[in-house]
Write a protein that binds this DNA or RNA. Sequence first.
DNA 1: AGCGTCAAGAGGGTAT
DNA 2: ATACCCTCTTGACGCT
Length: 138
Amino acid sequence: MGEEAPFDTRLALAVGGDGDAAAKTTDADGTGTRKKLRLTKEQWDFLDNRYRENSSLTPMQKPELADLLNLRPRQVEVWFQNRRARTKLKQKELDCEFLKKCCESLTEENRQLKEELQELRSVNSRQRLSCDSPRQRH
DNA sequence: AGCGTCAAGAGGGTAT
DNA sequence: ATACCCTCTTGACGCT
């Protein structure tokens, strides 16, 4: 995967284009099922830029961003929360990959060392054999 | 149909 | 007590 572009063709449909994203989040149709909100690419990019500057919100930033992007402060808060979680998960995956490589190279090193040891042992036993054999008298 | 992604809810921890 | 965070979970949605 990777830090792929989070948006695709759905983008155009996000928040229905009326700008009132917040109103679309919960039970908008009165059926008890909450509607799925997708932030627009612009909203996402804006939040992402702010996230890259600072991964946590200052108390001033939350209402400011919410106002700017026409979202509820809670939505901005949740976005940052989820963004941090995604970053952390991504890092875990990278760490895991790194450890896997370490493990592979150590396994290979171990294999080579065992091979060397085996070789040394057989050389050693051959030498002992030749020393221990009865000496020929003339 | 199953899967991945994302926004949001729930619940618990911590600092002030 | 309340504001903020983290983690896990849920539900909607698009894609294959």
